[in-house]
Nucleic acid binder design. Structure first.
Lengths: 216, 216
DNA sequence: TCTCGATGTATCGGCCCGATACATCGCTAC
DNA sequence: GTAGCGATGTATCGGGCCGATACATCGAGA
C-alpha cells in the first residue's frame, strides 16, 4: 500500500525521504498520521532494488529551504516505476477495499479512469455494507451477552458504517453522472487550481472526461 | 493491544483458540474484522511463556458443539494474568489513544473505575482534536495544492473527527454525571443491565455485576 | 461413500511501527 | 561568539500483526 503512495508522490516530483514523509502525511492525513521512517526507508530500498525508483545525491536544484551539501538523497521514479504505479492503481485485490488500501487508492483517483473509480467505490461500499450487517447482527442477536460499553462501541461503529455508505453512494452517483466529487459540499470553497495533468497510465492515453474545474 | 483483549476475554471464561477468535471478532467488530491466527497463536504462546495463561488439554466439560478428543487446547487465565490485565487496562501509554488501542480499552470499560474511564475518554478526545486540527489546516492552507478527490477525502475525514469528538463529549458528560453510556440513544433500545460497577483494582476478587448469562 | 464446509491448531514471510542513534543547519539567547 | 535548541535529514533494530498456507477432524447431505 505504501509502495503505491510513494510511487504516486514521486510521479509528481522527485523528493528526498523527509519531504516524502511530510507529503505523505498531508495527502493521507485521514488514513495514517505519519509514516514511520522505519517503514519509509526500507520501502524505498525495496523500490530501488526492484528498479522502480533511483537514488541520486543531492543536486543543487533545490532552492527554497536548503542549499546544503550534506548527504541528502533524492528519489526519482523510473519508467518501470510509472508502469508499476498504474498497475497497482488499477488492480483490485481484497486489500484494495480495507481502510488503508481504499484511502490510498482514493487519494490518487485523479490519476484513474472513471471505470476504475466506480469499481473501487462499489467494492468499498460492498465491504462496508458487510461490516455494517455484521454489526447489526451483533446488536440484535448478541446484545444480551454484551455489556453496555461494548454495545455503545458497536452502535457508534454502525453509525460510522451507515454514514460511509451514504458518502460512497453520493460519490458513485456523482461519478456516474460525470461530475467531479462535489459530494459533501463542505464549508470550504475549493480554490480551483490543479489542472490535474491528464494521461498517466504508462501505455493508455485515454484519461476520460474529468470535468473537474479547469481555469481559462 | 491484543494481549489485553485476550486476557479480558479469558477472564470471563476459559476458551480455546478458535472460540477466542470468534469472541474477539464480535467484541471488537468495530476495530478489526477478525484477528489472524498468525497473530493469535504466537500471542497465546507469549502469554503462556510469561505465565499469564495456562494451557490444558480438552476437558470433557464442553457440551454444546463438541465432544471430540482431538487436540483442542483450552486456555485459562492465571492470577498473574488477572493482575497483568488490570495493569494494562488502567495504564495509559500513547498507544492507548490510537484507534485500535482506544477501542480495546473502551470495550472493557465495564471492568474499569470511573476515573480511568474519564482519563482515557479525555485522552482520546485530545488525540482526535489534534487530528481534526491537522485536517483543518490542510483544508485551509494546502487546499490549492491538492486535487478534488484528495480534498474530498480530507473533508470526509474531518467530518468523522468532528462526529467522534461529539460522541466522546457525550460519553464524558454521562460519565461525570454517573450515568451509564446512554449516549447516542440510537434506534436500539438498550436492554438495561449493567449498573457499571466501580472499583476494579488488580487483585480484588469481586467480579462485579456482569449479568452475562449463566445456564442452569 | 464421499465430498464439503465448519471446526481446529500451527508456521512462515513480509509489512509496518516505535524507539533509537547520529549528524547538520539556522535561529535565538546569553 | 558561542551554546543550546528545534527543524531537517538518514538509517537500523526488535517486535507486533497480517495473509497465505498446511494439515487434521467432524457432521451432514449428495
Amino acid at each position: 500500500m505504501l509502495e503505491l503512495a510513494i510511487l504516486g508522490l514521486l510521479q509528481e516530483t522527485p523528493m528526498h525521504g523527509y519531504e516524502l514523509r511530510k507529503e505523505l502525511a498531508t495527502k493521507l492525513g485521514t488514513i495514517r498520521a505519519a509514516i514511520s521512517y522505519g517503514t519509509l526507508y526500507p520501502t524505498l530500498k525495496r523500490l530501488k532494488t526492484a528498479g522502480f525508483i533511483t537514488e541520486s545525491a543531492s543536486d543543487p536544484s533545490m532552492i527554497p529551504p536548503m542549499t546544503s551539501k550534506r548527504g541528502r538523497v533524492v528519489y526519482k521514479i523510473t519508467a518501470e516505476g510509472k508502469e508499476r504505479f498504474a498497475d497497482l492503481l488499477a488492480q483490485a485485490g481484497p486489500e484494495t477495499y480495507d481502510d488503508a488500501g481504499f484511502g490510498v487508492h482514493f487519494a490518487f483517483f485523479s490519476r484513474t479512469d472513471r471505470a476504475t473509480r466506480l469499481r473501487i467505490l462499489e467494492g468499498r461500499r460492498r465491504r462496508i455494507e458487510e461490516r455494517r450487517e455484521g454489526l447489526r447482527d451483533v446488536l440484535s442477536r448478541a446484545a444480551g451477552r454484551l455489556d453496555a460499553y461494548t454495545l455503545e462501541l458497536q452502535r457508534h461503529g454502525l453509525d460510522a458504517c451507515e454514514r460511509e455508505v451514504r458518502w460512497l453512494e453520493e460519490l458513485i452517483t456523482n461519478e456516474r453522472s460525470g461530475r467531479a466529487p462535489a459530494a459533501s459540499a463542505g464549508t470550504f470553497d475549493v480554490p480551483a487550481a490543479e489542472p490535474a495533468q491528464e494521461r498517466t497510465a504508462a501505455d493508455s492515453p485515454q484519461e476520460p472526461p474529468r470535468p473537474h474545474k479547469d481555469r481559462p
